[in-house]
Design a protein around this nucleic acid. Structure first.
Length: 348
DNA sequence: GTCCGGTGCT
DNA sequence: AGCACCGGAC
């Protein structure tokens, strides 16, 4: 049996009864698809019901106040969906006589309708053979066929769309589309796929390799944050400095560093003098401050760019916890601090 | 805490 | 291509 027939057999046994699956009314299908974007069935279902009840037709929704629509949407999140929903209802009601477009290309023009939703409505309401590709489809196809192209790359988006389209049942595209998404949602789940009972467990490439959890591949898009670090490099008459353990979680936990002040932006000397350094300087007076590096030293980590300044603070006497500068190389520290120590040499 | 997920905008 | 938008599951 081929992929689509196995899938449809699985679906006929395992499908949930959901109200948008027993209608071909484009309005209700569109409404359900907008609600279900970025939203699980369990969370979206009560909203779907209340929208259908409050606004049984696209004209009812078009005639509503935006505030009332937003109120009904309250709690679902991504509120631009509700604003787009209302705008599209008004457009369909007034410009299209209440008739939704019946094909992928025209559906795509509607506000709030992207590639997935246009394909979904075209197939569910108009029986067009346009394959849907949502998060479930990416997961199922990448695992069953062992496709490692990142799903959030332009190559991956094209590749998965083409594969989905090649697998679709052209005789009954609506059922096929429902089936593959339901399968991804119920059986081929992100964290705990039920492989032992899976109809594809004899052909699934990911299962053969034991790599279900590694697929689909996503490019790490952890955005790089810019942070501004100011290290306070104290020196006293006895050749001591303050060097302390970084105990907070995150980078460099349990490594040693000079006292650190993180700021919102890069500081010049007068900014620095405005800072409230009370917690660092309460036992330390008088002092003289100079900036070691006028240009920020930029230290790059995978997810952070640290713009760093080293402030040299001379003072006659430091508190008891101060350590001899001669000993600081013995402490574990970051490359950033180590490079500074090697470069600055503390005038030695 | 981290992961998950479509569309619109730039 | 990168980011903003939100709430829930785990």
């Amino acid at each position: 049996m081929d992929f689509k027939n196995k899938l449809k057999r699985w679906y006929s046994i395992n499908k949930r009864n959901l109200p948008w699956r027993v209608t071909t009314d484009p309005y209700r299908i569109w409404l359900s698809e907008i609600i279900l974007q970025q939203t699980q069935v369990k969370q979206g279902l009560p909203y779907y019901k209340s929208f259908v009840k409050t606004y049984p037709t696209v004209f009812d929704l078009a005639n509503a106040n935006e505030e009332d629509v937003l109120k009904l949407w309250q709690g679902l999140g991504y509120y631009s969906r509700a604003r787009n929903l209302h705008a599209t209802a008004k457009y369909v009601a007034s410009e299209l006589n209440g008739k939704f477009p019946d094909n992928y290309k025209d559906l795509l023009q509607l506000k709030g309708v992207g590639d997935y939703t246009a394909s979904a409505i075209a197939s569910f309401a108009f029986n067009k053979a346009t394959a849907v590709v949502d998060g479930n489809v990416y997961r199922v196809l990448s695992r069953v066929f062992g496709i490692e192209t990142p799903i959030n790359s332009s190559a991956g988006i094209k590749e998965f769309k083409a594969i989905a389209q090649s697998l679709i049942d052209t005789k009954d595209p609506a059922t096929y589309n429902q089936a593959i998404m339901e399968f991804g949602s119920v059986q081929c789940k992100p964290k705990t796929p039920d492989c032992p009972s899976c109809p594809f467990n004899t052909i699934c490439i990911a299962l053969q390799k034991g790599q279900q959890h590694l697929l689909p591949v996503k490019i790490n898009k952890t955005k790089v944050k810019t942070k501004y670090f100011n290290y306070l490099v104290f020196r006293d008459a006895k050749g001591q400095t303050l060097f302390e353990k970084r105990t907070q979680k995150g980078i460099w936990k349990n490594l040693y560093q000079f006292p650190l002040v993180e700021t919102e932006k890069s500081l010049n000397i007068s900014d620095f003098e405005q800072l409230d350094l009370e917690p660092y300087l309460k036992d330390i007076l008088p002092f003289d401050i100079t900036l070691y590096n006028a240009i920020d030293k930029i230290h790059k980590l995978s997810h952070q760019h640290l713009h760093t300044k080293f402030w040299i603070i001379d003072t006659p006497e430091l508190p008891k916890k101060a350590v001899s500068i001669k000993t600081i190389r013995k402490y574990p520290t970051s490359v950033l601090i180590n490079d500074f120590i090697n470069e600055f040499k503390f005038g030695l």
